[in-house]
Design a protein around this nucleic acid. Structure first.
Lengths: 345, 345
DNA sequence: AAATGCTATGTAACCGGTTACATAACAATG
DNA sequence: CATTGTTATGTAACCGGTTACATAGCATTT
């Protein structure tokens, strides 16, 4: 039972019945008037709008969702992303979503898969579709976890789940950097790989190997296991130098390891790019400052495209799936261009 | 027995009535069993749980929200933040929210205030409370825009809205950097201010002026208007140098302008920190790489605390407001501390 | 004038949950 | 044995919207 004693601040919001009462109309007419149905007399509609405004009436989203079986919200489940990755993707999503009158229900994909499953099922009735980014989840696990009744768009996730899947073209990115290194005369390139249970790490490594095999089958294509962490880049390169290994280019699976590599090189007095060139992947903001040649992906674009694809599936039940590759872009900077690396030192 | 014959895509999710039918119980008993009410026979509860699992039943959030007048979701309205700002704050929020079984409904505060108002009202019935960060909105505008019926926690927003307000202690941050600069012997400090219609920009400038007036009333305290952008930092310092102005420290209102200043100094051959010291504010990830002395705020902590405060207000209608100042932390790095030994001046 | 159609509005069912209240079965008490 | 209390379950109202269907009023057609 509701308390009658209430302070102004907690005034219960007006419902459609309040508006109906205040206009001497039925709730049906009010609903029709506010939703722009055609069979409402103009002056009636005006009366309704006036009253709604006066009472500060805002439709209750839960009631609306229940009745329409539509929430006008999409669920977003992302892994533990940092910095620009997260903010740019979400920014792109928010742009499209709010443009189309949808809202974003956000949930981090906690490492724990059961938690993730729980987060997703908690969205039942709350969202009209799901955008899932799960670069480290297995195909089988995903199948089990994803609700069968909702449209889903995946980002950078395992293939074959039967849902739209936007994927960053890691192979092409790796190929572009390899091409660039070869074009600038490098002959001994070392790839520092990312975690291999991560789809990006895996594809970038494979992309590197494929590019080397195609473009320079005669050259060595060394691969060293890494894990995306800066310190690992440093450690691996320091080790290479200590071993007296011969190499004139480091091709890292992401920017952080590339930056780590730069540190190790600098500490050892190796001149970049004269003695050794370095490339990364991702184009994090730091990359620009460190003049790192890298591969850029339009993250906001990915987010925007994911939402567009999802809304299309939602609004047109049998829209074809959009399983596109997102083309990355090569950004050439000082760590490969002998132009002179003006930064750092 | 599973139904093998069904097109996976259109399987309507099971409702509580399906579970009731399948167990020969009433929906009331099912509801009670699943919600852990005490007046349910253990074997009945077991039967219900088994059936729910078998049917893949998940309660419909909209129906639940409507009936309980509780959504277990909180709305988050943020300005157009970038990178770590956004991701860290949201990460902190998500941590606490998912821990307490709440979800986050996200909306960017689009520059346009009407859009923001619209976004907020669209949340009626969808969220139990709101977290709003509006460093650039006026007090009056906020009053109009915020729904009167929902608990609200503000972050870094104008005072006096009558809601909890977590604020970053910009004055203290500015004071700490000033203290540090003075302690290392600087005598001619220039503050590059942020946008003055932004609460942070305004408070940092005022904090700088107050600190100077208190700690070193005899020293000049020059302030130049800026706008938080890196290029502006560069331009202003280049201008200072061109004018032959005398200064031995740049006290910038944020890291980006400080980095811009560093660029200008380096280009002019001015040695940092020997000739000129530089401080920033925010401790963006780049700051560490550029060895920038700055002021750090635990953003994830701010987000977490905001959610905690909000949930408290939600669950205990008359919990006291939590209008705390978030204490920042001074991070001393190379742009103020000579790497080898402090210079005597 | 009666039949027909169209328009604006009202009535009530429904969406899928929760829960106050009613009830039936059984146990404990006088 | 009648009374009372306790426990497990069912019935139905309710949350706040939307909308199929019914209806009343009026205009048009025959």
């Amino acid at each position: 039972m509701r308390h009658q004693i209430m302070t102004a601040s907690k005034a219960e919001p007006a419902t459609i019945r309040d508006v109906a009462r205040s206009t001497n109309l039925s709730v049906a007419s009010v609903s029709r008037a506010l939703n722009g149905h055609s069979n409402v007399r103009p002056d009636t509609r005006a009366r309704v709008i006036e009253a709604a405004e006066r009472l500060g009436y805002v439709p209750n989203a839960a009631a609306r969702s229940l009745s329409l079986a539509r929430s006008h919200a999409v669920g977003v489940v992302l892994p533990d992303l940092h910095g620009e990755f997260f903010s740019e993707i979400v920014r792109g999503m928010d742009r499209v979503a709010s443009e189309k009158g949808y809202q974003l229900l956000l949930s981090n994909m906690h490492a724990d898969a059961t938690m993730a499953a729980h987060a997703m099922s908690a969205m039942r009735g709350r969202v009209d579709g799901l955008i899932v980014m799960a670069p480290q989840l297995s195909y089988e696990l995903l199948q089990k976890t994803l609700p069968a009744s909702l449209p889903v768009v995946m980002i950078n996730s395992p293939q074959g789940t039967g849902h739209s899947n936007l994927r960053i073209d890691n192979a092409q990115g790796a190929r572009m950097t390899v091409e660039h290194l070869l074009a600038t005369g490098r002959t001994a390139i070392v790839h520092i790989a990312g975690a291999q249970d991560n789809i990006d790490g895996h594809e970038r490594r494979a992309g590197f190997e494929a590019a080397m095999a195609t473009l320079a089958p005669h050259l060595p294509a060394r691969v060293i296991e890494g894990d995306f962490l800066e310190a690992t880049g440093t450690r691996i390169v320091a080790q290479l130098l200590a071993d007296g290994a011969h190499f004139d280019a480091i091709h890292a699976a992401n920017d952080m390891m590339a930056l780590g590599a730069l540190m190790a090189l600098r500490d050892a007095g190796v001149v970049v790019p004269d003695d050794v060139a370095v490339t990364g992947f991702d184009d994090i903001p730091l990359a620009r400052y460190m003049a790192l040649t890298t591969v850029r992906v339009d993250l906001a674009g990915v987010g925007a495209r994911a939402v567009s694809a999802l809304l299309q599936t939602i609004e047109d039940a049998d829209a074809r799936h959009d399983s596109a590759m997102i083309k990355p872009e090569l950004v050439v900077r000082g760590t490969t261009a002998p132009v002179i690396a003006p930064t750092m030192r």
